[in-house]
Nucleic acid binder design. Structure first.
Lengths: 292, 292
DNA sequence: CGCCGAAACGAAAATATCTTTCACGCGTGA
DNA sequence: TCACGCGTGAAAGATATTTTCGTTTCGGCG
C-alpha cells in the first residue's frame, strides 16, 4: 500500500485533536524527514509533547511511535523509487472543461487507490461471509449513499440473494424489526453520524442481525452498532467538488468488493443466476418497445 | 540502490569476525524480518551479543543499530512494492479478497482513465451549455443507469436546477411530452439500445427539447435522437465482473463532469445553493467532532 | 610447553529513547 | 459562577541502544 498513510491521516483527521492533527500533518507532509526524528524531535518540531506524538501514532494504528517510524522509513523509500507527482490542484471556476475532466478523473482514481489501501480485508471477509449466509439483507442509505445502497441491492438480487434497500427512515426501522440472527443489515453513511441510517441499524443490531457499517468515519456513532466496519476514504472536498463525489466513488468500490466476494463465496448458485438475469435483459435491449 | 545491502555485506564480509558475519548474514537474508527485531532480539537470533550487532551495523556504514534498522525497513518496503504488476489478470473464483480489492480498484481506475481520454469536450461543452440554460431537465435511466440518472438529478437539484429522474418508461414518456425547446432531456444507457430509455428521448427530441445521450455505443440507436452524444468507455467484462460495474463508473464520471460544468457556468446562483443545501443537512448529522 | 599480547566477544553499566502516568489549565454547559 | 470533562505536557517509569570494560580465545614466540 503506497499512499495508504496519507489516506489514513485524512480519514482519521476528524477524530483527532488539534495537537494530534499537527503531528499527523507533519508526518504526512514529510515522511522521510519524520522518520529521522525521535519522539522528542518530532514533538519539538510540531510544538507538542512526546505524549501527543505517541497518541497520534496509536491512532494511526501502530503499537507505538517506534513502529510508526519504521513504517515511515518504508514509505519514504518507496516514494523515493516510484515518484508520485500528486497534482492536487483544485478545480477552479474558470477551468476549461478539458481540465475539469482530467482533474475529476484523477481525483476519483486517487480515491479508489486510497480506498483500496485502507480497506480492512479481514472485516471485508467477515461481512462477505455473513452476506453469503444471510437469509435476507437490508441496506440503509440516504441521499447519495442511498444510491449506493440501491446499487448493492441490485447486484445482490442478480445473484439470487434476497436484499432490500431502504431510504425511508420509518420504513427502514419497520423492516429492521423483522430481522433476526443470520440476517444482515448494512448501513451506508459517509459522515458516520446520519441518524436516519443509524437508527435502523441499531434496531437490526438489537434484534440479533449481523450488522455492517460502510462509513468514512470509523469512529462515528454508526460503528457502535456495527459488527463489521468497512472504511471508505475521505478526500479533500471543495466548493466545486462536493464530498459526495469522492465518497460515492469510495463507497461504490467497497460495495463492489462485497458483491464480488459474495459471488465468489456462493459461486455455485450465483453463476447461473448471473447468466439468467443477463439473458432476461437481453431482449429489452434490442426491442424498440418493451412491455406494454 | 535496492540490493546494495547484499553487495555491501559480501564486500565487507572478509573484514568481519565470525560473529559479525553471522549477524550480517541474517540481515542480508531477511531484511524485513530483522527490521522487526530489537538489538537484543537480533543478538539472540544470531547467538551473539548486542555489542556485536552494533559493531556490525557500524561496519556496514550506519551510525548505530537504530539507523540500520530504519534502512532495513525501507529496503523491505521497496522490495515489497516491486512485485505488483500482476493485476492484468481477471478475477477468479478463488482469488483472495485482497486480490479482489486490488483488481477491482485497478480496473475502475483504468475505466476512469479511458473515459476521460475518450470524452469529447466539445460535446460535453454543448451539453453543459444546454443544461445551464434549461428551464427543466429530465434524465432517463433504467437499472444501474437509473442510479446514475438519480445521482445527476440529486446534484443538479443541489445547485438549484430543476431536474427529474425517470426510470418508469411510461411516466418518462408522459413527462417527455411536456418538454419543449430550451428544456433538456438526457438518456443514459450503456448498451445504446435500451428501448425504455430511447423512447422518452425520442419524444423529447420531437418536442424540440435539447437531447443528450450518455452511452457506451456512439453508434447505438439512442444517438439517433440525441443532439449531443457523450461516450462512456466500454471495458471488458467477465462473469464475476459484470459490465454494469465499469459502465457505472464511466457514466458517473461523465455525469460529474456535466455537474461541475454546469456549476461553473451558473456559479453566481450555484454557490449559494450549494452552501444552503449543505447547511440544511448539517443538523441531520449529530457531528462528533469537525465537519461531516 | 607455557607465557604474552592482541583481538573477539559478551555482561553489564550508562545513555538515549520510548511509554505511561498524572496533574494542570482551558473551555463548556449547567 | 462552578463543576466537569477533555486536551495537553511534564516528568516518572519502562525499553531499547550504546558504551565500557573485563574475560576468553587464539596465535606467536621464548
Amino acid at each position: 500500500m503506497p499512499a495508504a498513510l496519507a489516506a489514513k491521516v485524512r480519514t482519521l483527521a476528524p477524530s483527532m485533536t488539534r495537537s494530534m492533527q499537527r503531528v499527523a500533518e507533519a508526518v504526512a507532509r514529510d515522511p522521510a524527514g519524520c522518520a529521522a526524528l525521535t519522539v522528542t524531535g518530532l514533538a519539538g518540531l510540531t510544538g507538542t509533547s512526546e505524549a501527543t506524538v505517541v497518541r497520534t501514532a496509536r491512532l494511526l494504528g501502530y503499537p507505538g511511535y517506534r513502529d510508526l517510524r519504521l513504517a515511515l522509513a518504508g514509505l519514504a523509500a518507496q516514494q523515493q523509487s516510484g515518484r508520485a507527482p500528486t497534482l492536487t490542484t483544485d478545480i477552479a471556476v474558470d477551468d476549461p472543461l478539458s481540465d475539469v475532466v482530467a482533474k475529476l478523473a484523477h481525483d476519483e482514481q486517487q480515491t479508489l487507490a486510497d480506498t483500496a489501501a485502507g480497506l480492512d480485508t479481514a472485516q471485508l471477509g467477515a461481512a462477505v461471509t455473513a452476506l453469503a449466509a444471510a437469509r435476507r439483507t437490508d441496506v440503509y442509505g440516504i441521499g447519495a449513499s442511498g444510491l449506493v445502497a440501491q446499487d448493492l441491492v441490485q447486484k445482490l438480487l442478480r445473484i439470487g440473494r434476497i436484499a432490500h434497500a431502504h431510504s425511508d427512515p420509518h420504513l427502514a426501522v419497520t423492516n429492521a424489526v423483522q430481522l433476526r440472527a443470520g440476517d444482515v443489515a448494512i448501513a451506508i453513511t459517509h459522515s458516520g453520524f446520519t441518524g436516519d441510517v443509524i437508527e435502523p441499524l441499531r434496531v437490526a443490531f438489537e434484534h440479533g442481525a449481523t450488522t455492517v457499517a460502510v462509513t468514512g468515519r470509523p469512529d462515528g456513532r454508526v460503528t457502535q452498532y456495527a459488527d463489521h466496519v468497512l472504511t471508505t476514504s475521505t478526500s479533500r472536498e471543495s466548493e466545486l467538488r462536493p464530498a459526495a463525489m469522492s465518497s460515492r466513488t469510495s463507497q461504490l468500490l467497497v460495495v463492489d468488493c462485497l458483491f464480488v466476494g459474495v459471488a465468489q463465496r456462493t459461486y455455485e448458485s450465483a453463476a447461473p443466476a448471473l447468466s439468467a438475469s443477463y439473458e432476461a435483459l437481453a431482449h429489452r435491449h434490442g426491442a424498440y418497445r418493451g412491455r406494454a
